[in-house]
Design a protein around this nucleic acid. Structure first.
Lengths: 222, 222
DNA sequence: CCAAAAGTGTTACAAGTACACCCATGA
DNA sequence: TCATGGGTGTACTTGTAACACTTTTGG
């Protein structure tokens, strides 16, 4: 019995949630798309294996990594019994430019909205959907959305991101009112530029303040 | 690399949350307490392995089973590299009488409140705490508490259970008001007996109605 | 001056919280 | 008749939801 890791890697590109998939060069499922992943070495944890494999296969750097679920169906790999410890990861725009990566030949971003039309290998479609569900649930009560945005972002960026993840049922004013009420966004001295329309104030998420508040029982909740 | 399962099995006994532990007969950690579990066979899923091992080792029957987390620290077992897919399970009073079980010689229930004083083997203390945290979080937004109670239960049973799990910060009247408002408790024709004081109405959880409501977007939430 | 995106408050309604007394029963 | 646990309602506070116009800016 072998043990592998697989990672559902999310990025926020062109106002859409995207995931990272690799075009397989060999059988089984040659030419189809699969998650990044691979076997765990004897001397590393599963977390370390994910980070190593993502570096090897795609050269992306992760902002956030969390274990998702372990898939153990007996026939999930046609070759032999392989158990997969699945993860999901978030990366921000500084790190998701694949052009800059040497190893990224057959690695690409695919919008979540188009997944159903793609040929996805193994049980990875199931794993991806599990990841999307977890992200939707978690983004509501943990401030992990910021890991998908650049360090400085506008309220509109943040609002659009939440709409992209959750599916548009948010009232813009109420969203801003609530997120502002936590006092976790530091106003920076910067504004957006290079676009039409009014310039937006840029903010920065105050991670340290969040850690402190959390210790005192504060719960982030959109 | 070997793959095992371990289960944090919860029962509600004497108004306290208890977990099932086995006294180890052999080294390593001989005489210490460990979770029920064991290796996964080549032809079974992890879920099936948990059910099989619990039957073999403790003969208890599970009401609810859910994967918790996969623990992969390199040195978590002193003998060799063993990855553990941890589960938590809930069982109700019909099934938690260990006296009736042949294999249950060194298997016992231990109140969660006394865990810190017990000698617990491997990284199982960590796994148990992970399980307790998950149970606390999940019992709030999924109706899994009922799996710890007998089929027919009183409002006081339910209230006491939630207090035992969450730690007493509940207002009795508000709790009953809320849980009643869902309309998921069927009044039975039975009442408690064999105790002093006024007799309590017994209720039954309406699983089918819950499934239906859930499809329509209903969210259980204490 | 126009098109585009940013920014900003109020009101109505729903939900949550705090709180105390009477009832039924068997011993 | 008393001790024990069961059962119930209201007022207040807080949070959520719905909703539209003005401001800034570059072209």
């Amino acid at each position: 019995m072998k043990v592998a890791v697989d990672a559902v890697v999310f990025a926020y590109i062109n106002k859409e949630l995207n995931i990272l998939l690799i075009e397989r060069a060999f059988e089984p499922f040659k030419g189809k798309l699969s998650l990044a992943g691979g076997f765990i070495n004897e001397n590393e944890t599963a977390d370390q294996a994910v980070i190593r494999k993502l570096k090897e296969e795609t050269n992306v750097k992760l902002n956030y990594l969390e274990q998702l679920f372990t898939f153990t169906d007996v026939d999930r790999d046609p070759r032999e019994r392989i158990i997969s410890i699945a993860y999901y990861a978030l990366i921000n725009p500084t790190n998701h430019n694949l052009e800059a990566n040497i190893h990224a030949k057959d690695v690409n971003w695919y919008p979540v909205s188009k997944l159903e039309y793609l040929p996805i290998a193994f049980d990875h479609y199931k794993i991806i959907n599990y990841g999307i569900t977890r992200l939707k649930n978690k983004v509501i009560y943990e401030p992990i959305g910021f890991e998908l945005l650049p360090k400085y972002f506008s309220m509109s960026d943040l609002y659009d991101l939440y709409c992209a993840i959750l599916g548009n049922n948010l009232d813009r004013r109420n969203f801003i009112k609530k997120i502002t009420s936590f006092g976790l966004l530091k106003k920076t001295k910067f504004k957006t530029k290079g676009h039409i329309g009014r310039r937006a104030q840029l903010f920065e998420f105050d991670q340290k303040k969040y850690e402190k508040l959390k210790l005192n029982g504060f719960k982030f909740d959109i």
